[in-house]
């Protein structure tokens, strides 16, 4: 079965770093992995891409041509539209065998997911080549150290994912950088039910005013365990393994996202 991880998230959230960590991890496992750099504005990254979209088109090319008409965002949208119409260029460079495993390092701009049909089209094309797609939304753990911020992170992820219609995993990155207490707090938050978290926040006027909304959000996040968040400490081999296992399971079950909205909470470690 062909598998594909779509790596998305805000600028600087750690998408490219995640890809390079997985690149090394797959190598140590002797598992084949192909990485596609889909960010036409990418600078550098520490993995060897099998496909680099900048060989096809880069934002710099576009900006040099049309500096005056387009800001950086216009340039990116132009590139992404061009890419979505030239997907065969990518296809030709993939091995595309039955056991192909692909990671796609995407640009961060939210508009590509929420306003424009571009990313959805790209995902649909991958699906049409029989890839099972799982979206990974990267969130910098520094920004979600309190329950309200964690909710904000989940909502941001949902706003991108709702239009992609794939299975999904949220990854909290840069856990290795957090001070020990913060790390513990984040891990505790991830272990408890969201509803518990929301009930636990203090009774500031803001929280009281938004109590009903917070409860509603929490109940959705609890019901759909597909939106469970996973913390990744990429200096810890075990943390990397756990995450990969979870994603592999999700991709497998994610064949039909409609049926598998609810992912079983228990992952059988022998199932590979």
């Amino acid at each position: 079965m062909k598998c594909l991880q779509l790596i998305i998230g805000p600028a600087g959230s750690g998408k490219s770093t995640y890809c390079s960590v997985m690149f090394d991890h797959f190598q140590s496992l002797h598992r084949p992995l192909e990485i596609v750099n889909l960010d036409p504005a990418a600078e550098t990254f520490n993995y060897t891409p099998s496909v680099d979209i900048r060989d096809l088109i880069s934002v710099d090319d576009v900006l040099e041509d049309e500096d005056i008409i387009m800001g950086p965002n216009g340039g990116l949208v132009f590139c992404m539209e061009y890419i979505s119409k030239n997907m065969e260029w990518i296809h030709d460079q993939l091995t595309d065998g039955d056991d192909a495993y692909v990671m796609v390092d995407c640009p961060g701009q939210i508009e590509l997911y929420s306003h424009l049909p571009i990313m959805k089209e790209i995902v649909t094309t991958f699906k049409s080549w029989d890839y099972n797609v799982c979206t990974l939304f990267m969130i910098d753990a520094h920004f979600v150290l309190e329950p309200e911020k964690l909710i904000a992170g989940a909502l941001t992820a949902l706003s991108s994912m709702i239009s992609l219609e794939t299975s999904a995993v949220n990854v909290l990155t840069k856990m290795d950088q957090l001070p020990r207490e913060s790390k513990k707090e984040v891990e505790d938050m991830l272990e408890s039910d969201c509803s518990q978290l929301v009930n636990g926040v203090n009774d500031e006027p803001w929280n009281e005013r938004h109590a009903a909304l917070s409860r509603a959000i929490a109940s959705v996040l609890d019901d759909y365990s597909m939106f469970k968040m996973v913390a990744l400490d990429n200096t810890d081999e075990e943390s990397i393994e756990d995450l990969l296992l979870m994603i592999d399971t999700t991709i497998q079950y994610g064949e039909d996202a409609e049926v598998h909205d609810r992912i079983p909470k228990e992952v059988d470690p022998n199932e590979e």
């Binding site: 904000a152 909502l155 941001t156 706003s159 991108s160």
Partner: peptide, 27 residues
């Protein structure tokens, strides 16, 4: 919010989820 770009229910929902996330981030 760009009204012209929020006319499809999916983009509308996406926009409103993002707005809601800003509310929770900034309070």
């Amino acid at each position: 919010c760009d009204s012209a770009r929020a006319t499809s229910p999916a983009t509308f929902m996406s926009n409103m989820l993002y707005a809601c996330s800003i509310l929770y981030r900034t309070k």
